[in-house]
């Protein structure tokens, strides 16, 4: 899996690097949105795919990141490069808060609490006028000029520049995710997902594992949110409704939760495919909905999960022994 993942990543990287030289503005914009969704879905996969904690609040964290950028720009006058770490930290703290109910609740109960939190954040953005600008949202300045200690480094003006920022950010977040899931922490997340009781019995601090998974997953969304706010030069509550969260969940699930590449491919595919409907653009969302039902019905483990399963059973057949062919089974 690891090797196949690296090859796929390399192919994707080449494609995304070549894109600005080959594509027009509209297509590039779609790809930039896809990159934002890659960050969101890869982040969600940490909590849900690896640690097994279902969350429908990724869209809310996306919004919290964006509003952190908007509020800081308005009240403190900071720019993108200050807002980015601030947005990540603030969103991470919100992730910690969402992690607390996860310590007590499981499965669909947790899913529903996250839905409630998601909706509360949305309603909060709408209602808390003085802070969030209510339904009209906030204007956010473009990224513009970037300086370090007074030295002008580069300027982000065109869509193409923005695309590069998004690509670098997505690459960094994907790399961080890679490190996380291939570390001891990532292994403990999987342990919690597989069997929480056993994880405790071998001495793992499951509280720590769950909270870090939630914080990491929210922090990813926060980063994407800050970039989105500066790229769109504004935030409104309607950009962060529950349907965004569901969309991110769908991307992760269709790609394959708990696989590394699945959410990346799912995010790219589900952003780009609806754009290819052309004549059928009117039916874009209709087709999306139907596709989602079909995907979950046909391959609930997602595209990559399905491939992994097939490979495993093939390996097993190749190694020439079916499970349970051992004398120890016999009596019992």
């Amino acid at each position: 899996m690891t090797r196949a993942a690296l090859i796929t990543l390399a192919i994707l990287a080449v494609g995304f690097v070549a894109a600005p030289f080959l594509l027009g503005g509209y297509e590039l914009n779609v790809l930039m949105v896809a990159l934002l969704y890659v960050i969101l879905a890869v982040g969600l996969n940490l909590a849900t795919g690896y640690c097994g904690q279902f969350s429908f609040a990724q869209g809310a964290f996306y919004g919290i990141g964006g509003y952190t950028a908007g509020i800081l720009s308005r009240d403190v006058g900071t720019g993108f490069w200050m807002n980015l770490p601030a947005g990540i930290v603030v969103t991470g703290l919100f992730g910690l808060a969402l992690g607390l109910p996860a310590l007590r609740l499981k499965g669909h109960f947790l899913a529903i609490v996250t839905i409630a939190v998601q909706t509360l954040v949305y309603l909060g953005l709408v209602q808390w006028n003085s802070l969030t600008g209510g339904q009209n949202g906030l204007a956010v300045p473009p990224i513009g000029e970037t300086t370090l200690f007074g030295v002008r480094l580069f300027e982000v003006t065109s869509l193409r520049d923005l695309y590069w920022v998004a690509l670098v950010m997505a690459a960094v977040f994907v790399f961080i995710a890679w490190r996380l899931v291939h570390s001891r922490l990532g292994r403990e997340w999987v342990a919690v997902r597989e069997d929480e009781t056993l994880a405790g019995a071998v001495g793992l601090n499951t509280t720590f594992a769950k909270l870090t998974a939630f914080v990491a997953s929210a922090a990813f969304a926060g980063g994407a949110g800050v970039l989105n706010a500066h790229a769109m030069q504004g935030v409104t509550p309607d950009d962060f409704q529950i349907w965004i969260s569901c969309m991110v969940v769908a991307m992760m699930v269709v790609g394959g939760r708990g696989t590394f590449m699945g959410p990346i491919l799912g995010a790219i595919a589900l952003t780009i495919l609806p754009e290819l409907t052309g004549e059928l653009a009117r039916y874009k969302m209709l087709i999306f909905g139907v596709l989602l039902v079909v995907c979950v019905t046909v391959a609930p483990e997602g595209a990559l999960g399905r491939i992994r399963k097939a490979r495993e059973s093939r390996d097993q057949a190749a190694s020439g022994r079916a499970p349970a062919k051992d004398p120890s089974e016999a009596s019992a």
Partner: peptide, 15 residues
């Protein structure tokens, strides 16, 4: 009780 989706070695590693 084992971590079902992990390898034998990773199961030991976690402990």
């Amino acid at each position: 009780r084992l971590f079902g989706s992990l390898s034998v070695e990773d199961n030991l590693l976690l402990a």
